[in-house]
Design a protein around this nucleic acid. Structure first.
Length: 520
RNA sequence: GGCCCCGUCGUCUAGCCCGGUCUAGGACACCGGCCUUUCACGCCGAUAACACGGGUUCAAAUCCCGUCGGGGUCACCA
C-alpha cells in the first residue's frame, strides 16, 4: 500500500510551490491506489495553529486535492499534529541514546560556534570535537556539576559513505564524515524537525517521501535516525524546486513584496488587483499575491487550470500533451518522468491554461461563477432576482472568451448592472470630442429611437442604413456609440450590448454622453 | 568555502538510459499577417536552443573526462 504525505507548517497561506509538491504526492498515491495524508508541522507552535491552518486546508479543498487522513478528517494514526506527538519523539530519542546512536552533549552554543569558526579559519571542514560528549553517568554528573545543560546529538559515523537511491535523481552519494552531529533534542527537552519527521513517517507508515530538493542534503541524517531506530526506509524522491519567473532562484515565501513588482508577475498581478478593487478587498502583497494560491481563487481562476499548469511544471507525459483531465493525470503520473532541473513559474503560461479551461467550462457553470462575483461586488443583490439569470447568461454568451476569470465580469460588464457609468476618459475624448462626433451620434440617436424590435439583427441593419445615409464608414460612428453606452473602448459585440441594455437605457446614456461631450 | 544537485529556444518541455530516422519536435510568450465595429478568440507565418572544451566512434544533444555557469544546503528553523 502506497502512502504519501505532505507536511505543511501553519503559516497562514498556501504557497504555489508547496501545492506543486503536494500535487505530486497526491497524484502518486492516487495512481497506485494508495493514501495521501496531511501532517501538520507545528513543532514550534504558536497558539493559533487552527487559524493559520484554515486557509491552507481551504486551498487544498478548492484545488480538489483531498486527503485521506489528517486534520479535520482524522484517521487511524491520529493525531496528525506534531505538537501532539511529542511523547513519541521523546521515546525515540531515548532509544537513540540507549543504542549509542546519540549522545548528550554539554557544550554551550558559544563553544560550538568557536569550534566552527576555528575550522573555518583553518579552511577545514567543521566536525565537532565531541569534547563535551557525555556517554557515562559519571561524565554527565561532572558536566552538570559545572551548571551545564545538555542537548542530544546524533552520533554520526565518521567514516564510510551512504548511497541514496532517489526515485528522481538516481543514486546520490554522501560521505558520513561530512555530516554533522546534528541536534535532535534541545536543552529544554523539545525535539527538532528531522527527528519528528522521521518518527512520524514511520508511525504513519509512509512508503514514499516525495518532497522538494532542498531536503536532499537533509536525507543522510534522516536515514541515520531511521536506521538507528530500526525503521524500514521509505523510498525517497526529491523534486526540483519551483523557481521565480525568468530566474533560477527558488520561489521563496519571504519575497512576497518583491514578486508583486516582478515584471513577469505584473500582468496577472495588476489584473488581479483591479478585480480585488472591484470587490472592495484589502489587497496587500502579504495576503494577495500571485505566489499564494488564495490569490487565484479570489480573482476567479479555475482550480483545474492551476492544477494542470502545476502538473507540467516539472513533469511531462510526452512531447505534446498539455491538457489533461484529472483522471488522465492520475492514470499516467510517474516519478520517473519528473524533471531534474528546476522549473521557473511562468504566470503567462498559467494564464493560457486558464484561458483554455474557461473556454471549456459549460455556460451554466460560467454564469454561476460570474454571478457570485457580481453579488460580492454588490452589483446584484443576494438572492438574485429571477430575471438576472437569463440576462447574465446573455451577457456571458455575448462576452464569450473575453471573460478569462470569473472576476472579469466586474471589469467587463459592470455597466450592465449599474446606472452610473464610469467613462474611460481617454476613449471618451478620442471618440466623442473629436470634430463632428457629437453631431453624428446625435443623428444616430434618433435613428436608434425608431428601431423596433430592438434586437441584434435590426440594430445592425439600422446602423448600416445610417452609415450609408451619411456616407461614412461604420468605424466612424460605432466607437462613439460604444463609449457612450458602455463607458469603455473595448468589450463584447456592440449590437449585443445595445440589445441587452434595451432601447430606453441606450437613449438615456447617449443623451448623457452628448451632454458630457459639451463640457470639456 | 565544503558537500550535493542541475545545465536543450526568453519560459515549460520532448529527445538522452537503448548513439544514426534531430538540417532538434510541441506549447506559452514575443514579432509579422489574416479575420474584424473595439477587445478577445481563431487561423497562418517568422525568429529562437543542444553551456563550453576535449575525447570515444564511420556517426554524439545522446557515451566518457574536464571546464564553466546556475542553484540548493551547511541552525538548539521547518
Amino acid at each position: 500500500m502506497v502512502r504519501t504525505r505532505f507536511a505543511p507548517s501553519p503559516t497562514g497561506y498556501l504557497h504555489i510551490g508547496g501545492v506543486r509538491t503536494a500535487l505530486f504526492n497526491w497524484l502518486f498515491a492516487r495512481r497506485h491506489g494508495g493514501q495521501f495524508l496531511l501532517r501538520i508541522d507545528d513543532t514550534d507552535a504558536q497558539r493559533n495553529v487552527e487559524a493559520a491552518l484554515a486557509p491552507i486546508l481551504h486551498g487544498f479543498r478548492w484545488l480538489g486535492i483531498d486527503w485521506d487522513e489528517g486534520p479535520e478528517v482524522g484517521g487511524p494514526y491520529a493525531p496528525y499534529y506534531q505538537s501532539q506527538r511529542l511523547a513519541g519523539y521523546q521515546a525515540a530519542v531515548a532509544k537513540l541514546l540507549a543504542g549509542g546512536f546519540a549522545y548528550r552533549d554539554f557544550a554551550t552554543p558559544e563553544e560550538i560556534q568557536a569550534e566552527r569558526e576555528a575550522a573555518q579559519a583553518e579552511k577545514r571542514p567543521f566536525l565537532y570535537s565531541r569534547r563535551w560528549m557525555a556517554e557515562t553517568p559519571e561524565q554527565q554528573a561532572a558536566f552538570e556539576a559545572q551548571g551545564r545543560q545538555a542537548v542530544v546529538r546524533l552520533k554520526i559515523p565518521r567514516e564510510g559513505k551512504l548511497v541514496i537511491d532517489d526515485r528522481v535523481r538516481g543514486q546520490v552519494e554522501f560521505e558520513w564524515a561530512r555530516e554533522q552531529d546534528h541536534v535532535v533534542e534541545r536543552a529544554d527537552g523539545t525535539c527538532l524537525y528531522h527527528l519528528a519527521s522521521v518518527v512520524d513517517d514511520y508511525d504513519f507508515e509512509i512508503t514514499h517521501v516525495i518532497r522538494a530538493e532542498e531536503h536532499l542534503s537533509n536525507t543522510p541524517r534522516q536515514i541515520f535516525i531511521a536506521q538507528s531506530l530500526g525503521y524500514p526506509l521509505p523510498q525517497y524522491a526529491h523534486l526540483p524546486y519551483v523557481a521565480e519567473p525568468g530566474s533560477k532562484n527558488k520561489l521563496s515565501k519571504r519575497k512576497l513584496e518583491k514578486y508583486s513588482k516582478n515584471r513577469d508577475f505584473a500582468l496577472v498581478n495588476e489584473h488581479g488587483l483591479a478585480i480585488a478593487q472591484a470587490l472592495g478587498m484589502e489587497a496587500s502583497a502579504d495576503t494577495f499575491n500571485p505566489v499564494i494560491v488564495d490569490f487565484y481563487e479570489q480573482v476567479g481562476y479555475l482550480a483545474d487550470a492551476i492544477i494542470n499548469y502545476l502538473l507540467l511544471l516539472g513533469w511531462s507525459l510526452d512531447d505534446k500533451t498539455e491538457f489533461m483531465p484529472r483522471r488522465r493525470m492520475i492514470e499516467n503520473f510517474s516519478l520517473e518522468r519528473v524533471t531534474k532541473a528546476p522549473a521557473s513559474f511562468d504566470p503567462k503560461k498559467l494564464w493560457s491554461f486558464q484561458d483554455h479551461y474557461m473556454q471549456e467550462l459549460p455556460l451554466n457553470q460560467k454564469v454561476a461563477g460570474m454571478l457570485t462575483y457580481l453579488q460580492r461586488a454588490g452589483l446584484v443583490p443576494t438572492p438574485a432576482a429571477c430575471e438576472v439569470g437569463p440576462k447574465l447568461t446573455r451577457i456571458v454568451e455575448a462576452a464569450g472568451d473575453r471573460l478569462k476569470v470569473f472576476g472579469d465580469i466586474l471589469t467587463y460588464a459592470d455597466f450592465f448592472f449599474q446606472d452610473e457609468l464610469s467613462y474611460d476618459e481617454k476613449a471618451f475624448d478620442k471618440n466623442l470630442r473629436k470634430a463632428g462626433a457629437a453631431e453624428l451620434l446625435a443623428g444616430f440617436r434618433e435613428c436608434l429611437a425608431g428601431v423596433e424590435p430592438f434586437d441584434v439583427a435590426h440594430l445592425e441593419s439600422a446602423l448600416q442604413g445610417f452609415v450609408a445615409g451619411q456616407g461614412i464608414k461604420i468605424g466612424d460612428i460605432i466607437h462613439a456609440v460604444r463609449v457612450a453606452v458602455t463607458g469603455k473602448a473595448v468589450g463584447a459585440g456592440l449590437y449585443d450590448c445595445l440589445e441587452i441594455l434595451g432601447k430606453e437605457t441606450c437613449l438615456k446614456r447617449i443623451d448623457r454622453a452628448l451632454a458630457k461631450a459639451k463640457t470639456p
